[in-house]
């Protein structure tokens, strides 16, 4: 464990707390993509299936449970919460996720760390899917133009988590002799790159004060 990875995990937890605060606390799903929320639930339920046999550390174990629980809770409230359904904009949340899930599934089968292990295929699928899972959310924000304050912090924290993981991988690559995770590194790079435009606009709007809403052209 290094500081970059720890901060990355804390940023990831923060993104969940912000989203849960908005959807469960604020009873509003305005500006939130259910498609992204569902893809994240798939990412965690597939990647953390090793909860059943892998106890790398208590820290990992607890956070895996937290991420699966939080992502399923968010999907549940967005699908069945009366006031969440009323504020969720299904027409605008229209990114064709089948064009993301299918290629990731093919890639997961073709490119993974052990072609004889179904778990490795599923695990690689979840890594690839996470890289593109934010697209429906960014697509929705782009369509709406204006990003509500809490939503902008949620997206920022979610983007920052993987950016911090990139620093964590660089640190581990420099300090651990034979450490390499090409699948995760490349996917994490793509994932963070997708946020660059949002990061830019987030920075532009927040430097005038944290409560200004983010405007996307």
């Amino acid at each position: 464990m290094n500081i970059f990875r720890f901060l990355g995990d804390m940023s990831h937890i923060l993104s969940f707390l912000l989203l849960l605060h908005k959807i469960v606390g604020g009873k509003s799903a305005a500006g939130i993509s259910l498609r992204t929320a569902e893809m994240y639930a798939i990412v965690f339920c597939t990647r953390y299936i090793d909860l059943l046999w892998n106890f790398a550390s208590l820290y990992n174990y607890l956070l895996k449970l937290l991420f699966i629980g939080a992502s399923l809770t968010i999907v549940y409230f967005m699908r069945y919460g009366p006031s969440q359904k009323a504020t969720y904009n299904a027409d605008e949340d229209a990114f064709p996720v089948q064009y993301l899930i299918a290629p990731c599934a093919v890639l997961g089968v073709l490119i993974n760390q052990d072609h004889s292990s179904p778990f490795e295929m599923v695990w690689a699928f979840s890594i690839y899917l996470e890289a593109v899972a934010i697209l429906p959310q960014l697509f929705l924000l782009q369509k709406q133009g204006e990003v509500e304050n809490l939503t902008s912090h949620y997206v920022f924290a979610l983007g920052a988590y993987r950016a911090l993981y990139l620093l964590n991988w660089m640190f581990r690559f420099m300090t651990e002799p034979d450490y390499q995770q090409r699948i995760v590194w490349l996917s994490g790079l793509v994932q963070t790159a997708l946020y660059c435009d949002f990061f830019y606009h987030y920075y532009q709007s927040k430097k005038g004060g944290l409560n200004k809403s983010v405007k996307l052209p």
Partner: peptide, 10 residues
Amino acid sequence: PEEEEEKDEL
């Protein structure tokens, strides 16, 4: 295929 790395990250 790459040798299997332990999955010690989230």
